[in-house]
Design a protein around this nucleic acid. Structure first.
Length: 262
DNA sequence: ATGGCGAATGCAATTCGA
């Protein structure tokens, strides 16, 4: 089974790119971030016509996540509140960043982690607090269910210096600060492993390049889109690659897909 | 260091992303 994650930066703008990519890559489950559209206006039909079931959780202009699956998923959950309760979820579901479903006894959790703006900003604090809610969400699910987990998406965090084109001076940079890395490690310590790192240990592999200053042309990238697996799935994983082809195309997303085959 | 680019909103210029 192939599961992919891709921050498409607007489902409506990127619709032809995604259709083209799915026609060239047989993907069972596609997790999308930054769909940037309310559910009523989400272009479901083009993807249903390709044979996908579509599960969406969006809002106007910002954020928004979706999962496309060839087989129907069960136990779909949108947002945090129904799992952790209103007291812990507070207002964190105002931003649509979490959707999850179960397929073949795997719970796929698709995340669009907050960006965080800059170190010490209100958005940075929001990002760190958001991780605490996420931790609670995963803990509750693990108490309630016994599925294997695939937690994937745009994490807006590069865990290691080698995941950044030039890590010099990046310890006080958004996406690579110690507190952000600590927040993500805190999630992973329940027993999640980075599928990409099962096969590739060297640096220089990226999933996002800034639109500005010719980031892609100069290969000034970051690896911030991840697929994390519980051990049983990790052991069964046969490949995990970053496909940079979509980033080369006209009018691309600033992110490119990451695919795991289990 | 700063600003760069792209998308949405909504129709010009601002906000946001990372």
């Amino acid at each position: 089974m192939k599961i992919a994650t891709w921050n498409v930066n607007s489902i409506r703008t990127r619709q032809p790119h995604i259709i083209n990519w799915l026609n060239n890559n047989f993907i069972d489950v596609l997790c999308l971030q930054e769909t940037k559209v309310i559910d009523k206006d989400f272009p479901r039909e083009p993807f249903e016509n390709l044979g996908y079931h579509t599960y969406i959780y969006g809002q106007k202009a910002y954020n928004g996540v979706a999962i496309f699956s060839r087989k129907p998923m069960t136990n779909i959950i949108t947002g945090f509140t129904s799992v952790v309760g209103e007291e812990i979820a507070e207002n964190f579901d105002e931003q649509k960043r979490v959707i999850s479903g179960v397929i073949d006894d795997i719970r796929v959790i698709n995340l669009y982690v907050p960006n965080g703006a800059s170190i010490g900003s209100d958005k940075y604090e929001y990002k760190l607090q958001w991780f605490k809610v996420l931790k609670n969400y995963i803990d509750v699910l693990r108490q309630q269910e016994s599925y294997e987990l695939c937690i994937c998406g745009d994490f807006n965090i590069a865990l290691e210096d080698k995941d950044i084109y030039n890590s010099k001076g990046k310890e006080n940079h958004i996406m690579s600060s110690a507190l952000e890395r600590e927040a993500l490690h805190n999630i992973l310590e329940i027993g999640l492993k980075d599928a990409f790192r099962k096969f590739t240990t060297e640096g220089g592999h990226f999933s996002w390049w800034d639109y500005r200053s010719g980031g892609f042309q100069r290969n000034r990238g970051w690896r911030i889109d991840h697929l994390y697996l519980t051990n049983k799935l990790y052991e069964k994983t046969v490949s995990c690659i970053i496909d940079i082809e979509p980033r080369k195309q006209e009018r691309p997303s600033d992110h490119t897909p990451v695919i795991v085959e289990i």
